[in-house]
Amino acid sequence: MSEHSPQEIRAEALESLLVERGFLTGEDVDESIEVYSERVGPMNGARVVAKAWVDPDFRVRLLADATSAIEPFEFQGGEVQKLVVVENTPAVHNVVVCTLCSCYPWALLGLPPTWYKDPAYRSRIVREPRRVLVEFGLSVPDGKEVRVWDSSAEVRYLVLPERPAGTDDLDEAALAALVSREAMIGVAVL
């Protein structure tokens, strides 16, 4: 690499000083990046969704108090201290946004995709959710209500998608493999 962007130089300067002053080590930073790039991600949320589909008691607990319900999974990553799971039904489609920044349930979905953090999604999904969903390839029927959930400093949302038809024979692991990140944000259905 021959050219360094101003941000890259600034980030490097910041890290070098923080290391010199003993606030952190480069290895700490490496490890944190590894957690968020490899150990947390949508596969965690998919396991939760699949379990909710096959275990009615778990589904009830998940919808009542998601933070407690997912504790046994011992997911890393955080940002689920106040987790709310919203259930898609034949009458209601849910979609999640953070209008102010990028709040997102890391432990279940990893770090958010670029479009989730973009000003266009943050502002437009609230103003014209159906139109934005169409741009994602999802046309919600007129009779179906669309609910937009704005993540705040405290609450994180996860959409519980409807279980696809024709999956009665699949076990929990096979079901989890069907669950996409986009479906758990609510910009897609399965």
Partner: peptide
């Protein structure tokens, strides 16, 4: 809104999270 081009493969894990390494360093710090 150019969402289509930015949609990641649904189940991609270990996807590229940062456009440049410095972004990962800043997040990690």
């Amino acid at each position: 809104l150019l969402l289509d081009s930015q949609l990641a493969p649904p189940m991609a894990n270990g996807e590229v999270l940062f456009d440049a390494p410095w972004q990962g360093r800043v997040f990690g710090m």
